[in-house]
């Protein structure tokens, strides 16, 4: 490399912010899912402003406490919208351990 940057501060790569900004470190409250209450309705995932929740592909006949959602803790900022919007009260916001 000839010790130059690409002019105009252009970035010829995509999504590089996710490699450096692990926004999960901001969290002061962790979302904790009670799998026995979660029905996999997807409301939490559609409201998560950081796209951190995915609904897992779980068969309806699966045992009640099978995890039905997965939260990406590497990026979840702990805003608590998921817990507040959950119709079953299946997510609790718990103070992070130091």
């Amino acid at each position: 490399m000839d010790k130059v940057f690409i002019r105009g501060a252009s970035v010829h790569a995509t999504g590089t912010i996710a490699l450096v900004y692990k926004t999960g470190t901001w969290r002061v409250h962790d979302p904790v899912v009670d799998n026995s209450k979660c029905i996999g309705c997807k409301i939490c995932s559609q409201y998560c402003p950081d796209d951190c929740i995915v609904r897992l592909d779980v068969d309806k006949s699966a045992p009640a406490d099978t995890p039905r959602i997965e939260i990406d803790m590497e990026y979840c900022k702990g805003c608590g919208i998921c817990a507040h919007e959950c119709p079953k009260g299946a997510i609790q916001m718990v103070v992070c351990e130091a």
């Binding site: 912010i17 996710a18 692990k22 926004t23 998560c48 950081d50 990406d72 702990g78 805003c79």
Partner: peptide, 19 residues
């Protein structure tokens, strides 16, 4: 948009833009 944006926790502008 990828994850890792420095928007505030609970920023609904980012939520809406992503959607």
């Amino acid at each position: 948009l990828s994850k890792g944006c420095a928007s505030c926790a609970g920023c609904l502008s980012f939520g809406a833009i992503r959607k």
